[in-house]
Design a protein around this nucleic acid. Structure first.
Length: 428
DNA sequence: TGAAATGTTGGGGCG
DNA sequence: ACGCCCCAACATTTC
């Protein structure tokens, strides 16, 4: 008998909760990754995230080979892959780290049921968060929908429980089978021109001062690594706890939106606050296209969209500005913007993307009030005074090639306020 | 994790 | 010296 550890979005050996647990079990462990066609079939062949996953798997595989084992790679619908696997290999137990997105939950339930029918037990433990959906709740057991009290309770809980990291793994228990590692082309994909940058925690001491300046390399680039688990959240929290509270805040926002998505999966399609359901979005497709291409005539907005299109990344401050512009100035449904970000962001995380878009649109839990409309020029004055960021992405800024504003600011602001006011329903 | 409109205050110029 | 006006600077309210 052998057991299988199923890698998903936890692509590391170090401080991998369930992997370490699996390696202390009674059977040898085969490490497995499945390229999930339910997800991949929707993506372009040169998707940068797929290539990043592939590159990280290759690293994992060589680490495993040094330990005398290797990574088993499969491709297909996970349920069918598992059905085949248990016919090929005498499987004792299956291990994986828990995942909290609706699709992943449903997938894991299906696989678990199927395996149970073949007398194969599955074990899933918490790994990708400090606190999962039912660990930070109000006194009556319900989940928080406002960030600040959630954060306070989260910090209290951390103070109570502390962090446990860096447990030693028993690599003797890896299965010695050496599988072939496929090429990216064999998997039906190609290399991407966009590469994922390493994360950088060397200037956390300046994070508070520089995090809002898109021209400065003041952010950590951690998000994509948390998305795919190439770094452990516990190691990061241990590093910043009590030293960099503003940075820790961002990590708590991540878990806040994860538990919101868990408890309210309808937010994927609906406004969290139904009283905004009456808003009539203009949804002008030509205008949406100009926003996507960074051709709105507002430099701060256009620079952000061009950064996204060229690198798969956008500075957080600029994400807020571009999102506000789409929802308020153009009155385009936040779901359109959410979908565009989902397609282009390397660090796309369903819960954060949805939560922050609903925040910008004013429709979310604990969202910005609807009348808060960012002024792109004022934001530029505050956060990119010397046009350093803007010129990096819009070289033609001072020429006649740069488009005129798609809509006049004062007019757009007043139109948005009027439409929102009209669309608000009385009942919550 | 806003911005704009409106209100208040206080110093200086000036008759 | 005094009141009046102007207006910048700051505070509060409103969207």
């Amino acid at each position: 008998m052998t057991s299988i550890f199923w890698f998903r979005r936890d692509l590391r050996l170090k401080d991998n909760t369930t992997l370490i647990e699996a390696l202390s079990g009674k059977y040898k462990i085969i490490p497995l990754f499945i390229f999930d066609t339910n997800i991949l079939d929707e993506l372009p062949r040169d998707d940068a995230r797929v290539y990043f996953i592939y590159s990280e798997l290759k690293k994992l595989d060589s680490q495993l080979r040094e330990l005398g084992s290797s990574l088993l790679i499969k491709y297909g619908n996970p349920l069918q892959v598992w059905q085949q696997l248990i016919n090929e290999i005498p499987v004792g137990e299956v291990f994986y780290n828990k995942d909290y997105e609706p699709y992943a939950i449903e997938r894991d339930i299906k696989v678990t049921k199927m395996l149970a029918a073949h007398n194969v037990a599955t074990y899933g433990f918490k790994d990708q968060v400090i606190f999962e959906e039912d660990e930070v709740t109000k006194a009556d057991g319900t989940c928080y929908t406002v960030y600040t009290p959630y954060k306070n309770r989260w910090l209290e809980r951390l103070n109570e429980t502390g962090l446990s990291i860096n447990r030693e793994a028993n690599y003797q228990n890896l299965h010695p089978q050496q599988y072939n590692f496929p090429s990216i082309v064999e998997l039906g994909f190609t290399q991407s021109r966009i590469r994922v940058k390493d994360f950088n925690l060397s200037h956390l001491d300046r994070y508070e001062q520089t995090r809002d300046l898109p021209a400065v390399d003041g952010t950590s680039n951690l998000s994509v690594h948390l998305r795919f688990g190439t770094v452990s959240i516990r190691e990061i929290v241990a590093l910043v706890y009590k030293r960099f509270p503003i940075f820790l805040n961002e990590l708590i926002w991540r878990e806040f939106f994860m538990q919101i998505l868990f408890h309210y999966p309808r937010v994927i399609h609906e406004n969290f606050r139904r009283k905004y359901d009456g808003i009539k979005w203009r949804n002008n497709e030509k205008e949406f296209e100009r926003w996507c291409n960074g051709e709105t005539g507002y430099p701060m907005v256009d620079a952000g969209m061009r950064e996204l299109n060229q690198t798969g990344y956008m500075h957080n401050r600029v994400r807020m500005i571009t999102a506000s512009f789409l929802c308020k100035h153009l009155l385009i449904d936040w779901r359109w913007g959410e979908a565009y970000f989902a397609k282009h962001l390397l660090d796309f995380e369903l819960s954060s993307n949805n939560g922050n878009w609903q925040w910008a649109a004013g429709t979310g839990c604990d969202a910005a009030p609807y009348f808060r409309v960012f002024n792109p020029a004022a934001q530029q004055q505050k956060f990119d005074k010397d046009f350093e960021y803007i010129k990096r992405w819009i070289p033609e800024l001072d020429t006649f090639d740069y488009p005129a504003p798609i809509v006049e600011h004062k007019f757009a602001r007043e139109r948005a306020l009027a439409e929102y006011k009209k669309g608000i329903l009385n009942e919550e």
